[in-house]
Write a protein that binds this DNA or RNA. Structure first.
Lengths: 145, 145
DNA sequence: TAAAAAATGTCATTCATTGTCCATATCTCC
DNA sequence: GGAGATATGGACAATGAATGACATTTTTTA
């Protein structure tokens, strides 16, 4: 965890951005709540606990920087705001979204090799990233209906 | 094409919604510009040519109805607005999005059977729909850089 | 044809996100 | 460690997509 933290701070510095306590606090908040798909307001609230002076716009701006540096990825779960998650190279994952309760489940298996090979060959498209959302009903909602 | 048009009108009627000229005009505009991923403002502009009196809110409301009836699907290409496409049951497709020029390419092949089977079994998740976006560089941008 | 129900058009409002401005903090170089 | 150049933060205004409110118009049904 600490390794990831300092690696991110280094990346910020290397790209010419300054290491301010506000940026550190935002990175920490996201790291400490991984897999929670926080939106900007939620990150703002968390950072405010430790750093009450921070402004909402600063959080927005920091997230733009972190997205640019590939530290985080924007996620859209169609709930009217952008949510973020840490980019860990090792776990390319997908999301199951329950149409009933809205819960988001992460699927760690990739299984997109076939389709990616086909796309690169047939469409001559150089793939950088992908985003798969699967909508349906989660186990809990299936059992309780 | 006409079949699809009248099929949609029937579906609107069957569900108890009224067949107003405004709704017909919105459906026609979308049908006549399939695969163009129009957003609400663009649809509004198109409908206005034929039906200048229509208001923007009516277009928004009509799109909500059509989405509810599964006539169209909301698409989010991360450009700050919702875009729509016709639901044709026969062509479940994915999207390639060029990170350089922003072009959206449709991929007609599905190839998600493996992962869907795994999800249904391992996660006990009843799949209704899916949405796959692949980001990268299109052939044109690769050639011209 | 009239009353009831639903839909439209206009306009105001919401809310996430971004821009502006100036004081302040950070980093570099000495 | 300290000064100076410059990026950054905080506060607030502004933007823009989307929705709400409401009076008016259209459609349905008796």
């Amino acid at each position: 965890m600490n390794d990831i933290f300092y690696d991110i701070l280094n990346r910020v510095k290397e790209k010419g951005y300054k290491l301010t306590p506000q940026r550190k606090a935002v990175v920490l908040a996201i790291l400490n709540h991984d897999h929670m798909h926080l939106n900007t307001e939620e990150i703002y609230a968390l950072v405010k606990e430790e750093y009450p002076k921070i402004g909402l716009a600063t959080v927005y701006r920091t997230l733009i920087v972190l997205d640019e540096l590939d530290v985080i990825t924007k996620m859209n779960f169609d709930d009217g705001c952008i949510r973020y998650e840490i980019n860990s190279e090792t776990h390319q994952h997908h999301h199951l979204i329950c149409r009933n309760c809205g819960k988001v489940i992460e699927v760690m298996e990739d299984l997109l090799d076939d389709i990616e090979a086909m796309v690169e060959e047939k469409y001559q498209f150089k793939i950088i990233d992908h985003n798969l959302k699967i909508y349906g009903l989660c186990k809990h909602c299936l059992d309780n209906q």
